[in-house]
Write a protein that binds this DNA or RNA. Structure first.
Ligand SMILES: [Mn+2]
Ligand SMILES: [Mn+2]
Ligand SMILES: [Zn+2]
Ligand SMILES: [Zn+2]
Lengths: 137, 137
DNA sequence: GTTAATAATGCACTTCTGTTGCATCCCTTT
DNA sequence: AAAGGGATGCAACAGAAGTGCATTATTAAC
């Protein structure tokens, strides 16, 4: 079992108190979070630091960005061995219109999408909207 | 052949000079447009008017909103008999990372997406990113 | 046709997200 | 201990989106 410190170092991210806290926050959350969510959780920290931390995590493939159609970017930790940047590994996301939460459905990969002649598909964003399991029960 | 005036009236939208102009602008464009695009095309008109006109068109199912992942909402005219609000009629959208344009692929419907037990799918947003036909040629 | 009601437009202002520049602080390395 | 580089914090900015209110235009009633 790898510690968070080891994980960060393996991705060339220098370990700081702030980064550990933000990583733990993301790990505890089961849903994708916005920058505001993180902001509210760490009121002592500056917005910019949180912003840049997430950017760093994103660049180093520790988190992936989710565009669920709410207009606000959300973030979630990548799975073990997740390669969000590789087209064939993309999973779909579910946005609940009732509670507003967005979750990764990492087991549900995006099917092959056909595009017209002349178009070259490089990436696919697929968000299913509806009622989540917590809200439908 | 139905005139624009007749179309607007059939959707309970009062015909005004501004609305006719905006509709024609959308009809001439072959790609989805942002509010800024409309703003630039009608510098005499106020932003708010354009904003509310699009909102009206959207509520009355004359245009549909497209979230292509750029963070900026785009709009495109609905096809004849398009029912964007109905789940089964959703088409996919293509966003070109080269020219930045987004187009409706109205002939390409979104395949059936399976979601886990407990989740209820009501809507699907699918955006393919890559190189469009104009840029790949 | 004049008047009253209602909708559309324009202006100002606000909120929120995302972003950058720069100074300061902290840690590491020599 | 000193120097360098990254991380953090503060301030400020840009752009999109949205709201309140006054003014103007359009429709409906008389
Ligand atoms: Mn995900
Ligand atoms: Mn479309
Ligand atoms: Zn829910
Ligand atoms: Zn293109």
């Amino acid at each position: 079992m790898e510690t968070i410190e080891q994980l960060l170092e393996s991705k060339d991210i220098r370990v700081t108190a702030m980064r550990l806290l933000i990583y733990k926050f993301l790990a505890e959350k089961e849903v994708a979070v916005t920058l505001s969510d993180i902001e509210n959780a760490f009121e002592k920290a500056d917005r910019t630091t949180l912003y840049r931390t997430i950017k760093t995590f994103e660049e180093k493939d520790i988190v992936h960005q989710i565009d669920d159609g709410t207009g606000i970017t959300k973030y979630a930790l990548c799975e073990q061995g997740c390669s969000c940047n590789i087209k064939t590994d993309l999973h779909l996301h579910f946005h609940c219109t009732n509670c507003g939460e967005t979750v990764c459905l990492t087991d549900h990969k995006i099917p092959q999408i056909k595009v017209p002649e002349g178009f070259i598909s490089e990436n696919v964003n697929l968000v299913v909207k509806g009622i989540c399991d917590k809200c439908s029960g």
